[in-house]
Simulated scan of single mutants.
Amino acid sequence: MLHETWKENHVLKQVEVTHTNADKFKVSDMLTVGKVYDVVNETEEYYQIIDNSGLVGGYYKTYFKEV
């Protein structure tokens, strides 16, 4: 399964968090504004990154800008 190897995969790009103002979900515990994260997988709407918990999480692209 592809998602089981994401933490060991190479980094696709880096993104910086611009805000954590979420409409539905609380993301401020897992993302820090101004911090740069490594993208391990990308879809049309989401980035999968290694977040503050140390695990891979999927977040809307609206929270980020590319570095």
Rank of each mutant, 00 (worst) to 15 (best):
residue 1 M to C: 01
residue 1 M to F: 02
residue 2 L to G: 14
residue 3 H to T: 08
residue 4 E to V: 06
residue 4 E to L: 08
residue 4 E to N: 08
residue 4 E to P: 09
residue 4 E to W: 05
residue 6 W to T: 03
residue 6 W to D: 07
residue 7 K to W: 02
residue 8 E to M: 07
residue 9 N to C: 04
residue 9 N to V: 04
residue 10 H to G: 15
residue 10 H to Q: 14
residue 10 H to I: 10
residue 11 V to T: 15
residue 11 V to I: 14
residue 11 V to H: 11
residue 12 L to H: 12
residue 12 L to A: 11
residue 13 K to W: 08
residue 14 Q to H: 05
residue 14 Q to F: 04
residue 15 V to T: 06
residue 16 E to C: 11
residue 16 E to F: 07
residue 17 V to C: 14
residue 17 V to P: 10
residue 18 T to G: 03
residue 19 H to L: 03
residue 20 T to M: 01
residue 20 T to V: 02
residue 20 T to P: 02
residue 20 T to E: 01
residue 21 N to M: 13
residue 22 A to T: 02
residue 22 A to F: 02
residue 22 A to V: 01
residue 23 D to R: 09
residue 24 K to R: 05
residue 24 K to H: 02
residue 25 F to E: 01
residue 25 F to N: 01
residue 25 F to C: 00
residue 29 D to E: 13
residue 30 M to D: 12
residue 30 M to R: 15
residue 30 M to Q: 15
residue 31 L to A: 13
residue 32 T to E: 15
residue 32 T to Q: 15
residue 35 K to S: 13
residue 36 V to G: 12
residue 36 V to Y: 15
residue 37 Y to L: 12
residue 38 D to I: 06
residue 40 V to K: 13
residue 40 V to T: 11
residue 40 V to I: 13
residue 41 N to M: 05
residue 41 N to F: 08
residue 42 E to D: 12
residue 42 E to C: 09
residue 43 T to Q: 14
residue 43 T to W: 05
residue 44 E to S: 15
residue 45 E to W: 08
residue 45 E to I: 14
residue 46 Y to S: 14
residue 46 Y to N: 14
residue 47 Y to R: 07
residue 47 Y to T: 00
residue 48 Q to M: 13
residue 48 Q to E: 13
residue 48 Q to N: 11
residue 48 Q to S: 12
residue 49 I to K: 08
residue 49 I to T: 09
residue 49 I to Q: 09
residue 50 I to Q: 00
residue 51 D to P: 13
residue 52 N to H: 02
residue 54 G to H: 10
residue 55 L to I: 00
residue 56 V to E: 05
residue 56 V to I: 08
residue 56 V to K: 00
residue 56 V to H: 00
residue 57 G to N: 11
residue 58 G to D: 07
residue 59 Y to D: 03
residue 60 Y to C: 00
residue 62 T to H: 06
residue 62 T to D: 03
residue 62 T to Q: 05
residue 62 T to L: 04
residue 63 Y to A: 00
residue 64 F to L: 10
residue 65 K to P: 12
residue 65 K to E: 09
residue 66 E to D: 12
residue 66 E to M: 04
residue 67 V to G: 01
